[in-house]
Design a protein around this nucleic acid. Structure first.
Lengths: 190, 190
DNA sequence: GTCTATACTAAGATAGAC
DNA sequence: GTCTATCTTAGTATAGAC
């Protein structure tokens, strides 16, 4: 790859990292192209050399954010479902202190209002999320249930103002996941 | 009450109903004051006779939307938790076909980005939601778990583009709620 | 590829007539 | 209390220099 191409790719990656972080924290509408570019230490005008539109950036940024979140949680957790859920449903994750929060949780509602392309990326990210849980449960229905408790639990806990309430919710979700994971599957074995 | 006061109250109520519906369907940023007023068959200028700001309207509209949703589901469901969950986690609710969708689900992410007052209303609505479930479960932790599966389930199912996937998710959540509701509580009885 | 400058649009909020 | 008209801000997107 020529120097120019490498340079362009690096710049684009920097913009994507900025966008991933800002969008997951603040949502699509609250963040302007200007903010993203400034965060990446560029000016507004340079934006359209890399992306077609704000929406285009959003779609790509969601993928980036998902990769970041996946890598972050992969490092800390072992290979059982309870441990995964406990790390995901943590107060740190709720309080935005993690540099890389999960876009599935932070952007649930946002997505409903976006165009097809964005929805499609979100759906793909969710499928990948389910696939990972499936490896631990070997039961797709359980995986859906656990995923909903994880994603919904963090999303709700972020929205609630009452911290005690929010804490109780997080721990209730952790407990539900343990419970569900330990129930024997209905006799689908052959 | 004088005619003027009654008239004003009616007008405000009409605006609130419009706002409740539009905001729950499209979110805070996607809906302008203009759209709300036009939907209520008024003009923009009349807005500030009733509300301090768009954010003020939003806070009050969430309460209105919650009342509507509560009344709607109260009519259709009986007094057991599985029936409630099945009505809530329905394809109709997901597909926006209900005139009155649940703001807790439709606006989860939206809320995180709003001011204190809005968050506070959302938290109150959530508490009322939990209280209602509590009447059926008599177990607060179970209620949190079930609420998360309901709210998170609808929110996720709305965001997913793949209908088959979304259908499976809804039914998985219904099933999880039945399972959790039927497990004997840990020995907290005296 | 990145910059500065600018066109264009939308929306929140206010003023003043009726 | 509701209207029309207007102010102001902010943000997407484009044009053109380097």
């Amino acid at each position: 790859m020529t120097w120019n191409k490498t340079h362009k790719k690096n710049t684009k990656e920097r913009v994507l990292q900025s966008a991933a972080q800002l969008f997951t924290q603040e949502g699509y509408e609250k963040i302007s192209i200007n903010q993203v570019m400034e965060h990446a230490q560029l000016t507004r005008g340079a934006f359209y050399a890399h992306f077609d539109s704000k929406s285009d950036l959003y779609a790509q940024a969601i993928k980036t954010a998902a990769n970041n979140a996946h890598q972050a949680i992969s490092k800390t957790t072992s290979d059982d479902i309870a441990s995964l859920a406990n790390h995901y449903l943590s107060e740190t994750h709720r309080d935005k202190l993690l540099p890389q929060s999960c876009p599935l949780a932070c952007l649930i509602t946002d997505i409903t209002q976006q165009d097809q392309k964005v929805k499609s990326v979100y759906t793909d990210v969710f499928k990948a999320f389910i696939t990972n849980i499936d490896k631990l449960t070997n039961d797709q229905q359980r995986s859906f249930q656990i995923a909903t408790l994880m994603i919904g639990g963090i999303a709700l806990s972020k929205a609630l103002e009452d911290q005690k309430l929010s804490d109780s919710l997080l721990s209730a979700c952790q407990s539900a996941i343990s419970t569900l994971a330990n129930i024997n599957k209905p006799s689908t074995d052959i």
